[in-house]
Design a protein around this nucleic acid. Structure first.
Lengths: 296, 296
DNA sequence: GCCAATCTCTGACTAGAGTCAGAGGTTATG
DNA sequence: CATAACCTCTGACTCTAGTCAGAGATTGGC
């Protein structure tokens, strides 16, 4: 790996210190709502559309008993209603009551006011600088902390990612790719022991995917490379590619191939940067025009 | 005031959310130390050189009883020694023991490792982008959250600030300005009811200062404008100037004057941007070559 | 149709963070 | 030199956050 500069970690740590001391106080806007922070966070998530208790727990990474108790409190304050999910009666759904919605709006407004208050002392130009810096830092911090995890091609997150991938191909080439067919195909070849499907998940949402499978003795092929449009430029593609190569090695392969097409210029640039070299057509994929190979 | 863009607060809030969820975990490095976060923070501050219990309390903004208890715990773990301050025996001093220093080093190292771990997935170029963005954000966030507060010219913070101001003049012009004399003069004219002395304090340290005093019927004069070199470019100077003008108005003045010299180009630019216009020499300050005035 | 797995809930805890009221010694001030 | 102001400490609390063990209802897989 590349060495990490001490100055860089120092900047991060310095920022962390000043930030938690100052803006960390933004969290207190939750406190201004008169309920404990944990409870307010739960209410907030419900307001943003999380409608299953299990999803809530996964999102906030909390103990089930703890969440249950907080929901009970919110219920007795008449801010949410919890009901049985008719589809699976073990599960429970949550929703804001009208009073809960009001409270949510109030939290939202107060949080916005605090953010505005923080920026208030700055001149318009400085605000723009701060906003730009935070936007950049946000993208990179998020990108650095997504985890690439192997999932089954039929896992909901994989299905969503492939759906987005196919949508994009259709938007760009309008040639009628079919997401359901893609998933059916993937289910055959892109799972152990012949292949691996990886998704990059951030806040529970898939933001990138990629897969690899063995197509011949010692030869692997990379498929389904996709990065969400808002996440490009943060190095997610190359990270995914690197991980897929590791997976190929683990499958026992020493050569990696892939097909793509010239119009996907970001992808092509990514592959070439990563050391892939053009080769002759090695399959009969009618949608592909360019073929690449790399020896591991 | 200027309107604050909703998009800008949205960026700030989005950043805040992703940040506290991800890097906020940097704080856990304190937790890895086996002691509660509060206690670890206290130990950390002592290690950075805070040597008075009172300073510690002010710095972390904690209840005196609470700090006392944490110190007791650190003492019983043989990490710090608390002793009476001989100069003022109500006060107590704190220092790390050798064991405490070891522990501090360990916390420091682990915190650095975590920061490095966060950056590890990023490519060198992305790391540079992240570092630059955080550096910029840090400066602006700090600048936005300093508070400008009126203090007595003999307040230690004012004395330190004036000292830095005089040092800088001496470095740039080497004409033997004298800090002690400056403070003596300020103590006469730059305190209520005739004048006001403002310091910008960040983390307990003065990072900018400025003062205003009435020098004639309806006429105020601005003095001691200084911004710490590492804090320039964050709008602290114009904020200070604006506040001083408000103070002048409060003193009942409607015209503000000031003197400076052409070599102080940043200062001159600041004044001109703020609407100050050159006027004839209005005093006999031998160190000044330029004179400005603004009607409020 | 049984058994294991899943989801949610309750009860019983622990530990950390922080507040408040005063006691006791010490120093500035008129 | 009395008195107010100051600094630190102890005791007695409150509130949150979070954990753990199981009970009860429900569902999926063989």
């Amino acid at each position: 790996m590349h060495e990490i500069d001490d100055d860089q970690t120092a900047v991060l740590r310095r920022f962390n210190r000043s930030y938690t001391q100052r803006i960390g106080a933004l969290d207190d806007s939750f406190l201004g709502s008169g309920m404990p922070l944990g409870t307010a966070r739960v209410l907030y998530e419900i307001g943003t559309g999380v409608d299953m208790v299990a999803a809530l727990r996964a999102r906030l990474d909390l103990d089930s008993g703890y969440v249950s108790r907080m929901l009970r409190r919110l219920e007795s304050d008449d801010l949410v209603v919890v009901a049985q999910d008719p589809a699976d009666r073990r599960r429970r759904t949550v929703a804001l009551t009208s009073g809960g919605q009001e409270r949510w709006d109030a939290i939202e407004a107060s949080s916005g006011r605090r953010a505005a208050g923080l920026m208030e002392p700055l001149s318009p130009r400085q605000r723009e600088r701060l906003t730009a810096a935070l936007r950049e830092a946000d993208l990179l911090v998020r990108a650095a902390t997504v985890d690439l995890r192997p999932v089954d091609p039929e896992d909901p997150r994989a299905v969503v990612a492939v759906g987005a991938y196919v949508d994009e191909l259709n938007r760009r080439f309008s040639e009628g790719f079919d997401a359901a067919r893609a998933t059916r195909e993937d289910a055959v070849s892109l799972r152990p022991p012949r292949g691996v499907f990886l998704v990059a998940v951030s806040d529970g949402d898939p933001v990138a995917c990629g897969a690899v499978r063995t197509i011949g003795p010692g030869v692997a092929e990379i498929k389904r490379m996709w990065v969400d449009a808002t996440w490009r430029g943060a190095g997610l593609g190359s990270r995914m590619l690197r991980r897929l190569e590791e997976e190929a090695a683990r499958l026992g392969d020493s050569v990696v191939r892939l097909d793509t097409r010239g119009e996907l210029s970001e992808a092509v640039a990514l592959y070439e940067r990563a050391g892939y070299r053009p080769v002759e057509r090695y399959n009969d994929n009618p949608d592909a025009g360019l073929f690449y190979e790399k020896a591991l």
